[in-house]
Design a binder for these strands. Structure first.
Length: 420
RNA sequence: GUGGGUGUAGCCUAAGGGUUAGGGCACCUGGUUGUGGCCCAGGAGAUUGUGGGUUCGAAUCCCACCACUCACCCCA
């Protein structure tokens, strides 16, 4: 038999880690609901075209990172590499654009990108995704940003700071790209090969090149913020004012440009220390042209995607205390087949009374059963044997105190549920 | 796709050419009759990542592949 192992870049989330996930999801959900977001679930796979159009041909995600396959009917499908395109499709397809606007949506789930794994980067990873559709108010931008900020702060992150930039709009971007290109035209011999290619395909991306030789060129490059149109400049100005008002720290990062084509105006990320090179713990921004691009009515939108694996890495690095998940408080041990039948009845009665209970399996000595009870971490072990059946009263052992009492079988469920 | 590091039981690890691969954690069974944790004794668990090569002899040396890992790239 071959020894199976999980596919490269995937993760088994074992029981001992589930409390982290549970905690993060619960907090995210709570914050979203407090701000009026409603949950939407969209398929894990969609028509390949949707992502190609939405994210943009020429982006790394579309060109080399998608899990694409042909189904038995010959359809080209792709495991979602992100949430936004699918949520936009659902918004259009289900007529959410005729609902009261804005529509505020959140989602959780796995996303897939074919990439070489490393610290904080997996091929299947989990996102918490938030979108506000149908309003261009910078107040929507700030609400999305504040939501993720509050999530991190509430999970114990310190020294938070947004990286913030604007990528303009179809009105001002061509002008800036022209300025950028003419600046680069004077430095062509100083930059790396990748950047020469980027200049043609996605010129803004030269700004976040990490090649050593490009750094001084980037440092001298013109800033988009100096070339925004009035509307985009005004939008950013107001957003900054709102961020200041709420006390959310941010740093303008002229080099922040994102790998997905759909962004307009606001783009932002939050970086975390201590989880390796993949430090972006969320990324998002505004995408006012996306819904129209995907065949819907012109509709502005803003959103953010949060990587849960990375959050949990940070939490572990910070030794954040997370409440453990509930486990049964009672273990029912038995001696003899009559007692085992009584034990079986008892654990179900306990569970119906909302008291978690373990049933001892097999026919073993009491020592072995109590050893298991101790390892299970229960508060009480109920012992049922011939003596107990004869007297009609079970022995209940308090595992912490090491003391035991006799409790009438008829009162046992009440007795145990009254202590917890 | 490109580079570096690492692969010995579920986990941590010893043995750096020489008999049945050693230990710790965890797991199981005992230490008289029906009582956990500590202690003691015992047990089970490993085709040393896989395949090939060198050698009288390979966990150990060589090659290839695979996986993990870190970094580039890109991003969550």
């Amino acid at each position: 038999m071959p020894r199976y192992q999980r596919p490269t870049g995937t993760l088994d989330i074992l029981p001992e880690d589930q409390h982290y996930w549970d905690h993060v999801r619960a907090r995210a959900r709570r914050l979203a609901e407090l701000a009026g977001f409603e949950r939407i679930d969209v398929p894990m796979f969609e028509a390949t075209q949707l992502f190609a159009r939405g994210i943009g041909a020429g982006t790394d995600v579309v060109d080399k990172e998608m899990y694409t396959f042909t189904d038995k009917g010959g359809k080209q499908l792709t495991l979602r590499p992100e949430f936004t395109a699918g949520v936009m499709r659902a918004y259009i397809e289900n007529g959410l654009h005729v609902h009261l606007q804005p529509v505020k949506l959140y989602s959780f789930g796995p996303t897939f990108r074919y990439d070489r794994p490393q610290a904080g980067r997996y091929r299947q990873f989990t996102q918490f995704n938030v979108e506000i559709l149908g309003d261009q108010d910078p107040a929507a931008d700030v609400e999305v940003m504040a939501l993720v900020w509050d999530l991190y702060a509430g999970l114990g992150f310190r020294n938070l700071e947004f990286q913030l930039n604007s990528t303009g709009c179809p009105r001002c971007r061509p002008g800036y790209v022209a300025v950028l290109k003419s600046y680069y035209a004077e430095h062509l011999d100083e930059i790396c090969e990748d950047c020469r290619r980027r200049l043609e395909r996605s010129p803004l991306r030269v700004l976040d090149c990490k090649a050593g030789r490009c750094q001084s060129v980037i440092a001298g490059a013109p800033h988009f913020l100096d070339h925004l149109c009035h509307e985009c400049a005004e939008h950013l100005h107001t957003l900054r004012e709102y961020l200041d008002l709420l006390g959310r720290r941010y740093a303008i990062n002229h080099r922040l440009v994102r790998g997905l084509d759909y962004y307009t105006k606001t783009v932002f990320e939050v970086w975390a220390a201590g989880i390796g090179a993949q430090a972006a713990v969320c990324g998002g921004g505004r995408y006012d042209g996306l819904i129209e691009l995907l065949g819907g009515p012109p509709t502005p939108g803003v959103g953010v995607a949060v990587g849960l694996e990375r959050i949990i890495l940070v939490m572990k690095g910070l030794d954040v205390e997370v409440p453990s998940l509930p486990t049964p408080r009672v273990f029912v041990a038995h001696l003899g087949s009559r007692a085992k039948r009584e034990a079986l009845r008892l654990v179900h009665a306990l569970r119906h009374a909302d008291v978690g209970a373990w049933l001892s399996y097999g026919e073993r000595g009491l020592k072995s059963q109590l050893r298991e009870a101790g390892k299970r971490g229960v508060r009480y072990a109920v012992i049922l044997g011939e003596d107990e059946l004869a007297t009609g009263a079970a022995t209940v052992r308090d595992m912490d105190a090491g003391e035991q009492v006799s409790v009438e079988l008829a009162e046992l469920v009440d007795w145990l549920s009254g202590r917890g």
